[in-house]
Write a protein that binds this DNA or RNA. Structure first.
Lengths: 336, 336
DNA sequence: GACTTGTGAGAAAGCGGTTTCAGATCGATG
DNA sequence: CATCGATCTGAAACCGCTTTCTCACAAGTC
């Protein structure tokens, strides 16, 4: 009943090609994969047959026989954040250059399904790249214990046997604090990202270290979207802060919007700093002071690490990519 | 040499589970899939063994045996356009509800690799969803001839044997023209999207039909990104247009940015209209007049069409989803 | 001319599951 | 008590491809 869509019956297999070309299936395989020398005349016959029959190898069968899928999987929390497309493009490029496809999955910011998604990816990919995941450490331990090639991107977990590449969030936030301190800010608020996020914890760690600059910080729960920034911004007034730092640019932009509505001028009344430097070229209302990491390089490096892990089992130290400060129009010395 | 990563050797198979539970592999399969009644005691033993050994079925083997992958593939031109994440979320939700994973691929706006990407997806997915593709018609004919379940999203091609769902771009642009005409605009410029894009052609078709409203249109080549809009916007002045329509919101926002820099006020000196209503909540500098289609519904409907196609082979008429006009702050009557 | 070598191609054995088919067990029935 | 039927389980075939193993044949040596 199922598969009546002629599907199975009409599907042309490698034996069909062999029959048509008057050779065995093995020979067809050899020709197609170039794994052994075959007489040029046979090869030509095979290629003709392939063309005529429109043969396309079955990926599952190949995967099964070869023991690999030719695919890497990437899990991202949210495709709507412009951060990830940039990373993905780089990852895809690397993967393609190694003859692999990329399978992208999104958890829609829901850590509770991430475990399953990763498990799924592991079942059908040669390796997986986990982006900025909010998975609990315990889940991560379980997953890495499967000893399936896995690379963490933008998350570094001590004691986890998986290579990792990350932007140096701590360093990035330190740059921001240094900038603010230099401008003369003393009281700073932080619109915090997702609670369980390591990336967020790193930022907070830096904010605490920034006490050395004479800065005191108030942390306000927020989130990772512009909507969250917009909503949480109203709380900032109560803190007496002269500068606002945020989990990312989206949050910052949302906050600026709200501030405007509240009659708070940026940067005159309040300096606002973003994070990530997502390219909203010519779209965003504000030219944000922010920090950036080369996302292309980040993705590329992670993908290459994964590739190395899959082929050689090489497994190096976590890599931190330095962030860079971009001073633009949303920060200024505190007035009064 | 390869696979020394204990990989193959250590991988636990269904027979291992059977051995551990003291039953045959067939029984394990039946227990796991619930395809037949098995004695509860055996079932329990099997489940225990699965847990203890950490067994996970091999996706390729299942795919091969069952004749299906449990996966649908989606090709989008560019993940950086916020339009697609919205669609993807809906598609994922539908797919998950049918027990399928979603594999996303991006062509990075390069039509020349789309053919290969689709072919790849077909080899490893039960069905594929082609979003707003710029594939040439001839490529599309070849691909659909493979009679592999395929649904077109945001592209309708007469004579192609593939179901399709699309926003009614023609109708959307008509709404825009009606709005502009009503405001009193007579000369309109259009920042055109990708040349080969059907979606773009539909918009242009509507612009031409809008002559009936007494509107004359100048078409300027542009593209689909804010950067393109920014770059092309300078040309608008030469056309004498009092209103500017665009391929999408990103282009429109880019154009507005440029206009500001050129000292052209929006909407006083020039009305600008977007397309798509992408949710850049609290981020964009301008509240654009634009048209929208419910992207969630679009994705959902396409995914369900694909599902129907895969299971039943049902194959209906192309579906057009109506667009809606949102009049906001970027349009006004022409002055002078 | 018999004996290695070397080369190219076919047969067959997996890869790890699912599913058909046939057999075993057991209770119920005439 | 023998038979029938219903239920559950295992053996084996199969999904489509890769790869090893084996063999046939041709060329090269003494």
């Amino acid at each position: 009943m199922r598969n009546l869509r002629q599907g199975r019956s009409a599907r042309v297999t490698i034996s069909d090609v062999g029959a048509a070309a008057g050779v065995s299936a093995s020979t067809v395989s050899r020709v197609l994969n170039g794994t052994a020398k075959v007489a040029p005349s046979l090869a030509a016959r095979v290629h003709d047959a392939v063309r005529q029959l429109g043969y396309r190898p079955n990926a599952a069968a190949q995967g099964l026989a070869r023991g690999e899928w030719g695919t890497i999987g990437v899990l991202v929390p949210n495709l709507a954040n412009p951060y990830f497309p940039d990373v993905l493009k780089a990852v895809s490029a690397v993967a393609r250059s190694h003859g692999r496809r990329v399978m992208v999955m999104e958890s829609d910011d829901d850590p509770s399904i991430e475990h399953d998604l990763v498990a799924d990816l592991m079942r059908s990919c040669d390796g997986v790249l986990l982006c900025s995941s909010r998975l609990e450490r315990s889940d991560l331990v379980v997953l890495t214990a499967r000893d399936h090639p896995l690379v963490l991107l933008d998350r570094i977990v001590p004691g986890i046997a998986a290579p990792a590449v990350s932007a140096d969030f701590f360093g990035g936030m330190m740059l921001i604090c240094g900038h603010l301190a230099q401008l003369g800010h003393r009281r700073v608020a932080y619109l915090s990202g997702p609670e369980v996020s390591w990336a967020n914890a790193e930022r907070i760690r830096a904010l605490e270290a920034a006490k050395a600059f004479g800065i005191s910080v108030t942390i306000l729960p927020c989130g990772s979207t512009s909507r969250a920034g917009y909503d949480a911004a109203a709380e900032v007034a109560g803190t007496g802060a002269t500068a606002l730092t945020t989990y990312n640019d989206l949050v910052a932009l949302g906050a600026v919007t709200r501030m405007r509505e509240l009659g708070v001028r940026v940067p005159e009344d309040l300096s606002v700093v973003g994070f990530d430097d997502i390219a909203l070229d010519h779209v965003a209302h504000t030219s944000l002071t922010t920090v950036s990491v080369p996302r292309g390089q980040l993705g590329r490096q992670a993908a290459e690490m994964l590739e190395a892990l899959m082929t050689a089992g090489h497994d190096g130290e976590p890599v931190y990519l330095p962030m860079e400060l971009h001073v633009r129009d949303s920060t200024a010395p505190p007035h009064c």
